[in-house]
Design a protein around this nucleic acid. Sequence first.
DNA 1: TATTGTTATACTCTATAACTATA
DNA 2: TATAGTTATAGAGTATAACAATA
Lengths: 151, 151
Amino acid sequence: MDVSEDVGREAWMLLFQLFRAQRKEMAGLSSEFQLNGAQVHLLMNLQAAKPVPMSELAEALHCDASYITGLVDKVEQRGLVQRMPDPADRRVKLIGLTPEGLETRQRLMDRFSEPPPFIAILSQDDKTALRDIFRRAAQAMPTPLPGQASA
Amino acid sequence: MDVSEDVGREAWMLLFQLFRAQRKEMAGLSSEFQLNGAQVHLLMNLQAAKPVPMSELAEALHCDASYITGLVDKVEQRGLVQRMPDPADRRVKLIGLTPEGLETRQRLMDRFSEPPPFIAILSQDDKTALRDIFRRAAQAMPTPLPGQASA
DNA sequence: TATTGTTATACTCTATAACTATA
DNA sequence: TATAGTTATAGAGTATAACAATA
């Protein structure tokens, strides 16, 4: 096993542990909004302007369509999203944010984008280096990353 | 909101999404070993030489003691760990790895330490920079990070 | 016949409360 | 009386299978 591989391994293991150490805080953050993790990601995956088919949400959240039904039910009951018929295909239901949902999503993104301690404690130089490296990583990845926090 | 804060925010949001994009693969990795996430972390938190009280495991895994009972039951039935009495306090049970558990833990750590795509694709320089930054972050954090992968 | 979403149901993960043995 | 672990149980999260409406 060559040394160059070990650098990536060590970086990953450190990140893995750092990330995991603050998983509890993330859960707490979700419950601040009385949402579970999946609901948070549901809102993050919705855009203000363009309603989205439920099937697409299932794909984005890597979960079964039947689970999306229940997920949408809950946030719809809270007035954050609404189901709309798709004029082009009457089997499809489009999910869009309500004005209140948009506002909640905004607060959610602001809150979630607050860096956890292991990033907050870094020097400005390290933060910048991290950002640049992750930008390169994101660009090289096939996955289109969902909604960005508004600055 | 000043600009220096935004750098940390952007770094964090990018990391968050990159991390999340490969959460599915992590779950798949656990099930390769027919273990769930908690069982993986249980094994990772056990050391070869020194058996550990169950209460300590509950703390390390951030979960309730009652859940540890079931967790240990399952991996004990598979012969990976064993309960041992603590001579110093007969209420306490110490959990230690069996030889088979040690071997499984080794394979587990080797497998889990394989960097995910978003790290693997980085240049050698970027990997090194990441490692150094995370080392600084880990050192500055209060949490003692558990078992490191053996190189 | 295939696909979108829904319903009913079951399984896994995890916590809470009551309990036993020991301190 | 307090603590370590266990048991019973309940709740949340998620998937699978059968189904209705539409394509």
